[in-house]
């Protein structure tokens, strides 16, 4: 019972880690590649074009 609980907790924390990392990654891609705020758009302009993102 105890072993099973520990295994389940380990698995739950692993899934949480996967989720947090994936959302963090998605957030970075959205910020660097897609948010249209003027300063961000100007700074990231060439990279957005060079990575096939819709730019302006």
């Amino acid at each position: 019972m105890t072993t099973r609980t520990i295994a389940e907790e380990h698995s739950a924390s692993a899934y949480l880690g996967v989720l947090v990392a994936a959302f963090l990654g998605l957030g970075i891609v959205v910020l660097a590649g897609h948010v249209q705020a003027d300063a961000l758009h100007a700074a990231a302009h060439d990279v957005r074009h060079a990575n096939g993102f819709p730019c302006h």
Partner: peptide, 21 residues
Amino acid sequence: GLSVIFSMLTYAGYALILVAL
């Protein structure tokens, strides 16, 4: 220089998703 920074940022974002998967 901004291109280098934003390229590394973009790929860091992709990499976090890839390694999570």
